[in-house]
Amino acid sequence: MSALPSTSLPKYVRLLGYGGVLPFIFLALLIPFSLDHRALFAMALVNYGAVILSFVGALHWGFAMTMQDLSAEQGRGRFIWSVVPALVAWIATLLPMPWGCLLLVIGLVVHLRQDRQLLRVSRLPAWYLPMRLRLTFVASACLLFAAMVEALGS
């Protein structure tokens, strides 16, 4: 299947979605310039990344409940997948900072792949996947930057 015909990205979705990457950007930029609070900002970044990964995973729970064009097996797969990102995110919070960031990047990229697979069997608004791609790119770039700063600064 393909994307649903859609009007342009709703303004409130744009504000909420792109506003959601601001903590990634600010925290990643604070880490290299604040030696006194680096550990706090690093922990905040990993924790925020974990919350966001859990959030995008939960989207698939909602998709499984509401998408009428999914087979029972496809719906079951979405329900099962929807909890995996939260488990990955939780593990990321338990790891040393650079490894937690890397695990979150892997989780975000794998989840984007799951979004693409969902689009093959169901329909989503045309703006959904391009927005998810951009948000995943920015969040992942910030996490990778912070992981490199932490690894090189230690």
Rank of each mutant, 00 (worst) to 15 (best):
M43T: 12
M43R: 09
A44C: 08
L45N: 01
L45G: 03
L45C: 03
L45H: 01
L45V: 03
L45K: 02
V46T: 07
V46F: 04
V46M: 07
V46G: 00
V46R: 02
N47Q: 12
N47G: 12
N47R: 14
N47C: 13
Y48E: 06
G49T: 09
G49A: 07
G49C: 09
G49H: 06
G49R: 04
A50I: 13
A50L: 02
A50N: 06
V51L: 10
V51Q: 02
I52D: 01
I52S: 00
I52R: 04
I52N: 06
L53Q: 00
L53M: 08
S54N: 04
S54M: 05
S54C: 06
S54K: 09
F55H: 09
F55Q: 08
V56W: 01
A58W: 08
A58S: 11
A58E: 04
A58Q: 03
L59H: 08
H60I: 03
W61A: 07
W61M: 06
F63Y: 11
A64I: 11
M65G: 12
M65V: 07
M65H: 13
M65Q: 11
T66V: 14
T66S: 14
T66C: 06
M67I: 13
Q68H: 14
Q68D: 14
Q68C: 08
Q68K: 14
Q68S: 13
D69Q: 12
D69A: 07
D69K: 12
D69W: 03
D69I: 06
L70M: 07
L70V: 02
L70G: 03
A72K: 10
A72P: 11
A72L: 14
A72C: 08
E73A: 14
E73T: 12
E73W: 12
E73G: 13
Q74N: 11
Q74G: 15
Q74M: 09
Q74A: 08
G75D: 09
G75W: 05
G77M: 15
R78D: 15
R78W: 14
F79V: 15
I80A: 15
W81Y: 15
W81G: 01
W81M: 00
W81F: 13
